[in-house]
Amino acid sequence: MLEIINDYWLFFLIGQYPHGPLGGLAGTLLLATICLILALPCSILIAIGRTGKNRFWRGVTFVIVYVMRGTPFLMIIFWAHFLGPIIFGTSIGAFWVMVIALVLYESAYLAEVIRAGIESLPYGQTEAAKAMGFSRTKTMILIVLPQVMYNSFPALLSQFVSIIKETSLGFVIGVHEFTFAASQVNSILLVKPVEIYLILGLTFFIVCFTFTSAARWLERRIGKSQGVLPA
């Protein structure tokens, strides 16, 4: 196992870069980060639609969330793979197909996290803002969202772990990421699958578990500070 790490660590880490696209673990993390950055604003809009008063937007966002939650992520990936080139008129490459698929899928899940945050905020907060003369939009931006983003931060971090794990499915359309790199190494060496998949699995574990633990730690901290809030 050490031998494989010794020979292929750079490949595991960054794929063929700089002689090819950035891949490996770096590709995975890049993909997950881009997805989170793009999906977060989308999910906030969906969550606002879901909790809002406008029936039309409530319906639309409800359908988006439930379709995404009810469809296997692989199906979304294949849809993006198929429709991406049609919509953009040109091949956009597996990496960006995967970004689109992840953003579509994760926006729905993140939206549910944020919606839960909005709904768990004491009603007095919006009421106080209302009584002071803040419009609905200003209340959302100045009062509700800052608190929701703070309170939901641990849950969002946990969702980031899900995103990291989901990037591995980019493998099926040939995205250059960590799982892809490992299976390439596997097909070069052929006789070392146990070692290679152990390296792959354990590395994923170290990365994901770090974020999971951080999320738990933050949750305890935030939970504690909320515990002493006056009413």
Partner: peptide
């Protein structure tokens, strides 16, 4: 189990 992608777990079961 919760911090390793399912695909990786399936591959491990299948290949390793």
């Amino acid at each position: 189990a919760r911090n390793i992608p399912l695909l990786v777990q399936i591959m491990f079961w299948y290949f390793a």
